[in-house]
Amino acid sequence: MSRASAIASAWLPVALFCLAAAVSSAFPIGGETRGQRGEMPRQSDRFSNVTLYTQHGKAVHFYDDLVKGKTVIINLMYSGCGEICPANSAELASLNQLLGQRMGRDVTMLSLSIDPLHDTPQRLKQYWEAFGSKPGWLFLTGSTRDIERLRRELGAYDLDPVIDADPSQHAGYITVGNDNTNRWLVLPLQMDTSQLLVTILRTSRNG
């Protein structure tokens, strides 16, 4: 290979990657609070501030009202889901119980319906009541388009389109995030309850 062609071919990937980077991997920088070199962009910078509706019928903005400055436990569910969602909602209910008075104060649970056409606020309220009307636990619905956008921003998709099209495949884990410390992680809900709890508490720490 000649020197010239070696260099040309070596440049090529970077040029190709440039497109990929613009589409898939750019965090927005700048805006009101950040943009200083050296500050890490926030994971929540990629969340849309879409309008959602709680099980109590209240309109809320996803970022401003639910995530900003908080520690959240987010899961995807839908009330018509056969076996997976009820088992996982039961696990969330027991975590809620264990977290006690921290719920709503230090930690919030956000259960996002990925079947918003059927999951009206009323229906989600029945679901919430079925799992004990626990405090600090919001069930959320919204427009199909907004929910789909959030699902992708939360990384809750499968690279295999067939699996991705099966909503039950997105209901197996929780996304735990602390917007103050910008620390986020994903945990399978079928993990040991104590382990889930300890990790949630570690993530919820301030500073």
Partner: peptide
């Protein structure tokens, strides 16, 4: 899509035009 008020500054990229 980004939150209101947060817009990706145009041209801000680690890559120059030549890639």
């Amino acid at each position: 899509a980004y939150r209101q008020g947060r817009v990706l500054a145009s041209g801000l990229s680690p890559y120059t035009k030549s890639g």
